[in-house]
Design a protein around this nucleic acid. Sequence first.
DNA 1: CATCGTTGTTCCAACGATGTAAAGGCCGAG
DNA 2: CTCGGCCTTTACATCGTTGGAACAACGATG
Lengths: 329, 329
Amino acid sequence: MATLKDVARLAGVSVKTVSNVVNGYSFVKPDNRARVEAALEATGYRPNLGARNLRRGRTGFIALVLPELSIPYFAELAGLVIAAAQEHEWNVLIEQTFGTLTGERLAMASLGPHLVDAAILSPEALHVDDFQLSIPAVMLGEHAVDVPLSRVGIDNVAASTFAVRHLISLGRKRIAAIGAHPQRSTAALRLEGYRAALAEAGLPFDSSLVVPALNYHRADGAAAMKALLDMRNPPDAVFCFNDLLAVGAMRTAAERFVRVPRDLAIVGFDNNDESAYSSPSLTSVAPDKAAIARAAVDLLRQRADSPDLAMDDVQTPFSLQVRESTVAR
Amino acid sequence: MATLKDVARLAGVSVKTVSNVVNGYSFVKPDNRARVEAALEATGYRPNLGARNLRRGRTGFIALVLPELSIPYFAELAGLVIAAAQEHEWNVLIEQTFGTLTGERLAMASLGPHLVDAAILSPEALHVDDFQLSIPAVMLGEHAVDVPLSRVGIDNVAASTFAVRHLISLGRKRIAAIGAHPQRSTAALRLEGYRAALAEAGLPFDSSLVVPALNYHRADGAAAMKALLDMRNPPDAVFCFNDLLAVGAMRTAAERFVRVPRDLAIVGFDNNDESAYSSPSLTSVAPDKAAIARAAVDLLRQRADSPDLAMDDVQTPFSLQVRESTVAR
DNA sequence: CATCGTTGTTCCAACGATGTAAAGGCCGAG
DNA sequence: CTCGGCCTTTACATCGTTGGAACAACGATG
């Protein structure tokens, strides 16, 4: 592999002049520049990023810490983050935590100024105390109020209210919620939105209709739905805190021959790609994932350039994709 | 951030001695070792990987080149590759090509000895000429016979034969195939397996039952299924070359009120997580993705250590997950 | 007691790039 | 023709780490 030295020798100039050409420094004599460019071409020179970054004091990487790539929402998001980071000459390093506290602690510990320049975090279990980061970072989704970190995400309360309002507008009276979780602030906010919509419509809040989910996987949604259908007075609609829960719920409904949306309307959250293709297709709150990815990377770029910018809170847009799980064809 | 120099000063030894301790060199006096370890602890030293790798002549990264993270199969695989790579002290850099030739060329061009130590490739459009790599690499899935690269994957012919044999054993006579593709060798092999199973059972091969798919997305499966159902004599079973195509096909079947599996049995390929939760759930060929990831990384590790090992072809196991799309509850 | 091998430590040079300071051209003004 | 100033190039140090050689201390051997 050709280095600056090789190119310099071939062009008959010093290493630094080659470096200057490579980095677009203005004051290089035209004929020297030409010779260097020819030599660059001839050797097929490509800078050694490790060395460059060592010298520049940056790594050229950002970390993306997320629970698991096999969760569609995070996979889609990761793809968009990679694309957004590319435009800032950043490579993305993905760390999976599997949603566990130890996994997340491990990931946080591995983050440091010489491994990555900045980090995007999607923690599920971390505490405030764990955020001792020496690099710029941004949280996706929600975090406890007192965590001193910037955040990018949608307005969860508004989005949830919007979703439940949709169910109410269809005439549903007993609307359940799947996905309550003692630790996750996202869950708390979505629950808040759910309650707000009920209150606004004058519908009673029935805590037996709020089902917790430990993980947000399909299996949890299926189990929660079973519990709801076993009730003496089952719901006529469910608001699921993510699409995987909703898919699980739909699966249970199908197994029990409960007709969706006639007997039971279902709304999900995240608008995974797969949700448009299930039968029935799934109505879902659709955050603008590309906007989230872009905003997160932009925010980090600013923080990386001027480290003591104040923390920020970026609200990204969302919409509601209405499909067959609430409105039959 | 603490460097070796800081630790050395604190411990009262030379930088190299600290380096020796960090790297587990045997011959360090116990009391020195103790002092160094205390100093390491006190400073919270963490090696600068960039510098270490610069010195060692490696980068500490492998590239994973794939079409798109939003495709569940690749997302799941990526998660497993990351996990497998971690055990070899490798970080994974994901490059998305979006299945285009230019995307793949771009990714290949960015691969070089100073960016990554090795690469795992899942190309869809690349030609033989494009494989001018100076680092160890392994292909996932299939490649044309004359490509000089190691490969890891399942026996596509056997797996496809197995899947179609399953459909035949259910009494299906007109079995269609969705996913033919002029360029992809995987498609050719799966088609070969399909034909083999038909031949073995004495069923005629009807080329009008073989539907091409340009991409392997859900929409392509839906479109292909529409074409099949529009035939004068539609099939009673479909073998889809991946689960996304199958999901699309199921969606179309539902829209047309074709009952699955009674009127139409469907088999997919890849066994995506979502396939267990659709209604009906999807029978699918299940490659052992963890084995693929592990084998690929192991192979690269060997090649990285001894660069001129011969190319290899690793066959990983697969199974058939029989679900409701072929056998009703 | 000189020699030797073993063990433990240090110093120095590299890996490939870039920032800095300084030196070498060149030009025009005095 | 000297000087100051500007453009252009170079030499050198440096980023944090590790390999290798050199060196020092040690007990064991002849």
